[in-house]
Nucleic acid binder design. Structure first.
Lengths: 152, 152
DNA sequence: TCTATATAGATGCAATTGCATCTACTGTCA
DNA sequence: TGACAGTAGATGCAATTGCATCTATATAGA
């Protein structure tokens, strides 16, 4: 028997909105960062995770889990961050294959400057558009679309 | 007086969810298309718009408005689609700078094959996760995040 | 009509992404 | 221990993206 799996009109509409709106919001946030003369969103994601992780730092594979970036992407992103002095890589004792990545003072400072811009974008693009209740509802609905194995 | 514009925790959470979930859903849909041996999402967006537009076709700048792709991106995407015989470019009479892009039979056929995969992804990733009511609610909330000048 | 400005689309070049693969180390099991 | 599968990261190369600019036509004014 044939499996028929056409999405409902409501599903299509929600999907379309999600695709469009998220694309647009990302673009506007990236534009704001560019205008502010700070690095792009991807850098923020990594710096944020590393700042949360504290002095212990994180292994690259942990960053992959948390940020959903591809492995090669993280590898190169970290190389760029290191070249800019925003993170440092430390050999890790108990696993000769790996390393630990830690945010530097300059990294924290850059993150702060980025947040000044990024946070404002979030406030404008989302905070100013929906009430607190609506934001909670939205978060809850989106939460139900997460992949089972997704963090947070 | 300083303008303070820090986003509320609810706004931050909604933003984070939106970023993560949309990234993840795109990735899963792209994977499905790849597994199905059909072209990527971006091609679908363009073929879809052109199919809706019918025989009259669309001008590239209209595709830009509808899909939110950058101008250079559309320019090159159309070149690839044309090279694959999925669209054709026609000189337009009343504006010597422009052209009209029309979907071909092969283009329509490719779009159908893509939809078989893409539609199933939408059904699984979104349709199966939320009730119809919740889908409507989600669409409405996302709708309120659109940029004023955004289509649809 | 002639010039300046705006719009449509293409493109050279640098940066990033994606894919596939590679190296190096770990852990398992005979 | 010695082979073997698995995990952590890096990297060569091709494709795509982003930026800046370019060509060509259109439009508005003087």
């Amino acid at each position: 028997m044939m499996e028929k799996a056409d999405p409902s009109p409501a599903a299509i509409k929600a999907w379309a909105r999600l695709m469009r709106v998220s694309r647009q919001l990302v673009e506007r946030a990236e534009d704001a960062l560019k205008d502010g003369g700070v690095p792009p969103l991807a850098w923020y994601d990594v710096l944020h995770e590393l700042a949360e992780a504290g002095e212990g730092g994180l292994r690259p594979f942990q960053l992959i889990e948390r940020t959903l970036f591809a492995q090669y992407n993280i590898s190169r992103l970290l190389a760029r961050l290191e070249a800019d002095g925003l993170v440092e890589k430390l050999r890790v004792a108990d696993d000769g294959r790996g390393q630990t990545v830690r945010i530097t003072g300059k990294g924290r400072e850059t993150r702060r400057r980025m947040w000044a811009v990024y946070g404002r974008s979030i406030a404008e693009l989302v905070g100013a558009k929906l009430s607190n209740d609506d934001l909670e509802t939205l978060s809850a609905l989106l939460g139900r679309l997460r992949h089972p194995a997704m963090p947070e």
